[in-house]
Amino acid sequence: MKTVLSLVVWFVLWEIAGRLKISTIVPPFSAVIEAAIEIAPTEKFGKAAIITLRSFGLGMLLALAIGIPLGVVMARVKGVGRLLGMWVNIFVSAPISALVPILMAVVGIGETTVVVTVFLFAVFVITLDTQVGITHADRSLVEMARSFGASRAQLYSKVLFLSALPEILAGVRLGAIRGVKGVVIGQLLVAIIGVGELFEVYSNNFLMEEFWALVTIVFLFAFAISEAIAALERRVEYYAASR
């Protein structure tokens, strides 16, 4: 695994840079790992993690529950697609964090705001990719199913959804990555809960080992989720090329 080797080189460099005290904010890699092992089992971290995971999970669930069906409708009902298409495209690349102050004013300062932030960060790319996937579902497959008398429900479940699954999963993976960014930004802005709060505390009190430990943990979480979904994607990849 060449990738692993490359990362090992970076960890070694990090260790050396930390030992040489090149910068006050960069502690040695080993110290960071130590800190990570220390804070992980603490109650404080546990609470923060639960709140964060909860917000993330809820937000993602909402994004999936609304995004995927919406994407399907947008693809199959031309009117809806044309009406909403422009907005989905705008919001997919827009600075959504600009909307958080509004959320704070309307919904208040707390977990709900963070959940809505995660939802907003993730939903648009999920909708867009679902729409693209369904739209590009092989026409001849649809015609074939119809010619053999498939009902609407069968058409959707047996042909369309599976055909679009690679794109849908790609959208979900991107949505999950954005969701993690959303939960971090949301919590940083709200500043009183979850890992966002911990980030503030650590950096304000110059607890650099703990700060980087938390950064590493969150980054690893984002990476793990992304890879988990990518593994699902690889499972359906085998038919993606021959569609």
Binding site: K181, V183, V184, I185, L188, F199, S203, F211, A222
Partner: peptide
């Protein structure tokens, strides 16, 4: 993939 926003306070 990383939530870079976390580093901004730093």
């Amino acid at each position: 993939a990383a939530p870079m926003a976390a580093i901004i306070p730093l």
